[in-house]
Write a protein that binds this DNA or RNA. Structure first.
Lengths: 88, 88
DNA sequence: CGGTATCCAAAGTGATACTG
DNA sequence: CAGTATCACTTTGGATACCG
């Protein structure tokens, strides 16, 4: 719960839920969070087993984040809350 | 959303949802939050129109907090999230 | 009982600049 | 592109003590 309470955490989870595998940049654009904060959040969510980070060794670099099953389960439950929040 | 992200906020909402009209002390006991923090959270939730504060002029004093319709709606959506959090 | 007042340490966040 | 480093700053929240 403390993780979810950090800034943008729920938005990241639900954002990735909608975008499917998402690149760092796409998440950043979708959220309006600073790069350092977003980076921290992604790390924490990955550490918590909610996100999976896939790195492709290409040039330019590509990194994709996707929800784990656990993360997807959370997203389903989170969605109505974010929806509620956006409605007011 | 920032309000919900503050400590114990979601727990207060769902706690009151379960307890029905709840007294300050009962909420405090249920949550393990400091009095100042809990006080702040209750104020904010009331201000946001999620909680209603009912004060009875008795001795000893009695104050009850209950969810508004809006708060109840939120509680319904919040429940699955808290449940998810408690399951891990 | 139901808070408030004070104080303060700790944490979280973003702006900016820079890197592999 | 996908971050990390630094840093200054704001906010938060708990401990403690006290009040109507």
């Amino acid at each position: 719960m403390e993780l979810l309470s950090r800034t943008h955490a729920m938005q990241v989870v639900c954002g990735v839920a909608h975008m499917g595998p998402a690149r760092y940049r796409d998440i950043e654009d979708a959220l309006d969070a600073s790069s350092s904060t977003l980076s921290a959040r992604l790390d924490e969510l990955a550490e918590a087993g909610l996100l999976e980070r896939e790195q492709y060794d290409e040039i330019p670099p590509r990194v994709e984040y996707d929800l784990t099953d656990d993360g997807r389960e959370l997203a389903v439950r989170l969605e109505p809350v974010l929806e509620w929040a956006s409605e007011r």
